[in-house]
Simulated assay, not measured.
Amino acid sequence: MKLFTKTLLAAVALSFAAAPMAQAQTYGHDRKPGYSSSWKKHDANKRHHWRQGERFSDWKRRPAVRDYHRYGLRKPARGQQWVKVDNSYLLMSIATGIILGVNAAR
């Protein structure tokens, strides 16, 4: 019984010692939503002016705009779809990721 008690106490003591080390290695990835540092604020102030013919590689991560008539957008042709990026609607070529049209959001 003494060996079990000593082993249990040693395991508890070790867990208390190891917990701060495990938390120290998160590198700030567990920040609360809404937290922003100065470099993020600087990037947020930059606006991108989208142009036809420009490639937008990250467009697949954004949901397609299905109710395009609601936003005053024309029906996309086959192989095209509208996506909202920042405060603009971009008509994208599904195959290439090239911007075919740009409309400002209302």
Rank of each mutant, 00 (worst) to 15 (best):
M1I: 14
K2Y: 05
K2F: 05
F4D: 10
F4Q: 08
T5L: 11
T5C: 05
T5E: 10
K6L: 15
K6S: 14
K6G: 05
L9K: 12
L9A: 14
A10H: 02
A11E: 01
S15F: 06
A17K: 02
A18R: 05
A18Q: 05
A18M: 11
A18P: 03
A19P: 00
P20L: 01
M21L: 14
M21V: 14
M21D: 04
Q23S: 01
A24H: 06
A24Q: 04
Q25P: 02
G28A: 02
H29W: 09
D30A: 04
D30N: 07
D30T: 03
D30H: 07
R31I: 13
K32P: 12
K32S: 06
P33W: 06
G34Q: 03
G34R: 07
Y35A: 09
S36R: 14
S37D: 12
S37I: 10
S37L: 09
W39F: 13
W39S: 07
H42V: 09
D43L: 15
D43T: 15
D43G: 14
A44C: 00
N45R: 12
N45Q: 13
K46F: 10
R47Q: 04
R47C: 00
H48D: 05
H49T: 08
H49N: 13
W50V: 11
W50C: 00
R51M: 08
R51T: 11
Q52G: 05
Q52R: 05
G53I: 04
E54P: 08
E54L: 10
E54Q: 15
R55M: 10
F56K: 06
S57G: 07
D58Y: 10
D58P: 01
D58T: 07
W59P: 02
P63Q: 05
A64F: 01
V65H: 01
V65P: 06
R66M: 11
D67I: 08
D67K: 11
Y68F: 15
Y68L: 09
Y68W: 14
Y68N: 07
L73R: 07
L73N: 11
R74Q: 10
R74D: 11
P76V: 06
P76D: 02
A77S: 11
G79F: 00
Q81R: 15
W82N: 05
V83M: 03
V83A: 07
V83Y: 04
K84G: 01
K84Y: 01
V85S: 14
V85I: 15
V85M: 12
D86Q: 08
D86R: 03
N87V: 03
N87F: 01
S88L: 02
S88A: 12
S88I: 02
Y89W: 10
L90P: 09
L91P: 09
M92E: 06
M92P: 09
M92Y: 13
S93C: 11
I94P: 09
A95G: 10
A95N: 12
A95V: 01
T96F: 02
G97S: 09
G97T: 04
G97E: 10
I99K: 05
G101D: 12
G101P: 07
N103G: 03
N103W: 01
A104T: 14
A104G: 13
A104V: 14
A105V: 15
A105F: 08
